[in-house]
């Protein structure tokens, strides 16, 4: 295939992915909007007003970047894991496997679909947050770099989950038992500096701490961890995971007999 044909194939996958999550918007776009609005009302307004400042900002402002990041993580992961597993389950993945597309294009297409949903939900949550507080971007480059890299990383994570999943239970286990606890303990609602030294040290092994804090730095200009190190860590994990997923697809793990 020529580079133009590869481009057409890539755009085809992305178009299909975007069309899919837009078609089922009550399952994909609406729930995070409602959930995050509840977080803003309950944690931000009702409880937050009693908590006072955190990191030099009122509590609502402090948690908004973390909640946006949580939406990006959950939705980029959720999009790829459900879409890719769905194509496996319905065998429609065979449409792609019989075509001349390379595994790289398939991977890039699904990841781009995951990033699109992650970013779109992130934008919706950001827009909703403006009804509750003011936000000003301190560092635009860091903000967007973190959002995109995190969405890519978790799209890749969703892909790994979908590749190894054999039944629908398998795609629910990781988000429920791994992703959600790591996100809630990833400094979304609190500064890890508030934790006792031991638990602060433990938190530093949670990759989501770096993403949430790097994003909070981009928006508010404060972070519990070094932002340069955070960006480097996210980029490194992304590259490693990308190479791993490509290797899995090239070998046909979970998709070819």
């Amino acid at each position: 295939m020529s580079s133009y044909e590869y481009w057409v194939a890539f755009v085809t996958i992305v178009t299909r992915e975007v069309r899919r999550f837009l078609r089922i918007w009550p399952q994909t776009l609406l729930p995070p909007a409602i959930t995050m609005s509840l977080y803003f009302v309950i944690f931000g307004n009702l409880i937050g007003s009693r908590i006072g400042d955190m990191g030099g900002f009122d509590y609502m402002q402090y948690i908004v970047p973390g909640l946006i990041m949580m939406s990006v993580i959950q939705n980029s992961y959720g999009n790829v894991v459900s879409s890719f597993f769905g194509t496996k389950f319905q065998h429609s993945i065979e449409e792609m496997l019989v075509s001349p597309m390379s595994s790289l294009i398939i991977l890039l297409g699904f990841v781009a679909g995951g990033v699109a949903r992650g970013v779109m939900v992130g934008a919706i949550v950001t827009a909703l947050s403006l009804f509750f507080t003011d936000l000003a971007l301190t560092n635009v480059l860091v903000t967007f770099a973190v959002v995109i890299m995190t969405a890519v990383l978790f799209s890749l994570g969703g892909m790994v989950n979908a590749i190894f999943a054999n039944k629908f239970d398998d795609i629910a286990i990781v988000p429920t038992f791994v992703l959600t606890p790591l996100t809630y303990l990833g400094g979304v609602f609190y500064s890890i500096d508030l934790l006792p030294e031991f638990w602060r040290g433990v938190s530093l092994f949670n990759p989501i701490v770096y993403m949430v804090n790097a994003f909070r730095y981009g928006v508010l200009g404060v972070s519990d961890v070094d932002v340069g190190f955070s960006l480097l860590a996210i980029a490194t994990f992304t590259v490693i995971l990308f190479a791993y997923v490509l290797w899995l697809l090239n070998r046909g793990v979970g998709i070819r007999s």
């Binding site: 295939m1 020529s2 133009y4 044909e5 590869y6 057409v8 194939a9 755009v11 085809t12 996958i13 178009t15 299909r16 069309r19 078609r23 769905g86 194509t87 319905q90 065998h91 429609s92 065979e94 449409e95 792609m96 019989v98 075509s99 001349p100 597309m101």
Partner: peptide
């Protein structure tokens, strides 16, 4: 290839299935 078992996305429209498949082959 025309496989033995139905292997298209059950939720996609008939027209979209064909256009998407052509796209996988690089057809604009």
């Amino acid at each position: 290839i025309v496989p033995q078992e139905f292997n298209f996305n059950q939720f996609e429209k008939v027209f979209d299935i064909l256009v998407t498949q052509a796209g996988f082959y690089g057809i604009p």
